[in-house]
Amino acid sequence: MARAISTRRKVTFTILGWTIGFLIFFPVLWTVLTSFKTEGTAIATPPQFLFFDWTMENYVAVQNRSNYMRHMSNSIVISVGSTLIGLLVAIPAAWAMAFSPTKRTKDVLLWMLSTKMLPAVGVLVPIYLIFRDWSLLDGLAGLTAVLTLINLPIIVWMLYTYFREIPGEILEAARMDGASLAKEIVYVLTPMAVPGIASTMLLNIILAWNEAFWSLNLTASRAAPLTAFIAAYSSPEGLFWAKLSAASTLAIAPILVLGWFAQRQLVRGLTFGAVK
């Protein structure tokens, strides 16, 4: 009897899980499908799901109109660059907070997180003016710096929770075994922290890749990443759904592939400490 109930529950929850998963994924799927339609079919009612004349014309049109590769390389430079610089700052910070905390460590962590609660638009004007005066507008360096600073609290928090799981006694053992601080970091700390650093890195690349607010406001063409590239298809041309979808698909494809391959790392990184 108990077995029958549990099987029924399993079936119910499996169906429920797949349904929710499909609903969440549907907008992405619809965008991809629409990108292969003609502009006419894209707005047809009732909407056509799979049985329409598949075409690549939108991709050709998008390629002809804008330089996808340049936007993509901008996105890579900005997301990878901001993540690496962020890690460079965050690893020592998280290390200090996790292994030699002071009375104020908790306050500093909360204060860092509180900056994420401030609406970004609240600091848009001062940052825009700084960018204008320092000639950083539409430049990769400026945007990378802003994204580094914006995601830094998240990187520090993630690494901090991760490092806290490493028992301090192991580091002390390394010190007793004659390891200098540098050797302790290279031979003991880093190998133990690699999964945490990797998942933090992946998540941050995705966050930076998808960031739109600052990219749109601080870049125009030269340094515009893929988010700005999509946006360029929405306003000036009216509602060209199929082309917009093609641009969106091109923009999300690389990060989707990365996310697919790294999903196990990501889940482990996000739930680390919660599930032992």
């Binding site: 028992p167 006694e169 192991i170 002390e172 053992a173 390394a174 010190r175 007793m176 075994d177 004659g178 390891a179 200098s180 003991v188 190998p191 133990m192």
Partner: peptide, 20 residues
């Protein structure tokens, strides 16, 4: 003198082995 240079060895309660 830092612990690394005191030429002492320590065995911890938790063993503190390097898991990797």
């Amino acid at each position: 003198t830092p612990p690394a240079r005191r030429r002492l060895a320590m065995v911890f309660q938790s063993y503190a082995l390097y898991p990797h």
